[in-house]
Simulated assay, not measured.
Amino acid sequence: MTDPQKPLPHVQPFVERKTQPPRKNRVDTRGLLSIVTMFVSLAALTLSMLGAAKFVFDIFDDGLSNSLDGLPIKVIVLGVIFFFGWGIGLVSIRFFGNLVYPMIIKTYSWACLVAVGILYIKVIQKLYMQKYDLTHFWAYLAMLLGGLFVLICLHLLVEDHDLRPFAIPLLIISVIQLFTITIRYVFIANPNGLMLFGDFTIFGVMISISALMLMHIGILSPLRDQINNLFTHNRTPSKNGNSAG
């Protein structure tokens, strides 16, 4: 005798679900702001550096006396434009996480080093000819320090950027200056001994800065830490999943 057949389980009829329309892609606001701030910063930095280059050329070509007209205004304008671009670049890299701009800044850093090297060679030439006064000497020193200051500012924009390779060309040019000093004051008759102060001052300043860059002893570390703290403070995720503060 066969067992009675069990009834089949009740299966609900197939229900076709309504498909939702595809969602439109939202604009990546953070990425857009990263690109916009990069271009704004790049434009400001380029403009300030081109203006500074023209200012330096005017001093060497036309003389310092012809460039003194409106000198404070020129310095203020170039300084404001540069620091504006530097600050916007800092926001683009550190806050919005721009990954392209650091590579551009590294290229600009090498271009700035080339400009400082050319300026250093030009100053050595002026010192060798000994046709300058005290005002021109301080102008030459200020221009060299200004170029190095711009290089350091660009260095601080990029995290984990190494300045040691930038010191090598400056050290080579410093050795060239030693050769010119030796030739001028040892092998040439009747040199002006009062000009020796200018030669050794420029040499001492440039060799000291180059040595500090090469030793990498962390002089700029406190400043870099303060900059990093501006973008890491109160950004740890809270328990609710939102940023604290």
Rank of each mutant, 00 (worst) to 15 (best):
V186M: 01
L156P: 02
Y108A: 14
D3I: 15
L194H: 03
V150M: 02
R94I: 06
Y120F: 03
G97I: 02
L230C: 08
S34Q: 02
T236Q: 08
E159H: 08
L154C: 04
T107L: 06
W138S: 09
I81Q: 04
L223I: 14
S92G: 04
S210K: 12
P165V: 00
L141N: 01
F14G: 12
H233Y: 11
L64A: 08
D28A: 10
N242Q: 15
I181G: 00
V80T: 04
L32H: 11
L144H: 13
F60I: 07
L113E: 12
L90S: 14
K122R: 13
N66G: 09
L145Y: 09
V36C: 09
L78P: 07
P165D: 00
G245T: 08
Y108H: 13
V158L: 02
C153Y: 04
S208Y: 08
C153H: 08
H233T: 06
G79A: 12
V100Q: 15
L220K: 00
D225E: 12
I93H: 04
V150K: 05
K6S: 09
A167F: 06
S243M: 10
Y128E: 02
I73F: 09
M129S: 13
I217E: 08
Q12K: 15
R30C: 07
F84W: 08
T37Y: 01
G85R: 05
E16T: 15
D199Q: 05
I176D: 04
M38L: 09
I35F: 15
V40N: 00
S243K: 05
K126N: 02
I172K: 03
G97H: 04
K54T: 09
V77T: 05
S208C: 13
A52Q: 11
T135R: 14
S221E: 14
A142Y: 09
L113S: 05
L196Q: 05
L223Q: 09
N234R: 06
I35N: 14
R235V: 09
G79E: 03
V186C: 05
I88H: 03
D69N: 15
F14S: 12
G204Y: 11
G204R: 13
I227H: 12
I219R: 13
V15I: 15
V175E: 03
V100C: 07
L141I: 07
V175M: 08
L148Q: 11
F149E: 10
G241C: 13
L45D: 00
I118W: 09
M49P: 00
Y128C: 02
D3Y: 15
T46A: 13
I76L: 10
T46H: 03
L171D: 04
S65Y: 15
I104V: 14
I188E: 15
S34E: 07
I105G: 05
K122Q: 11
N234W: 03
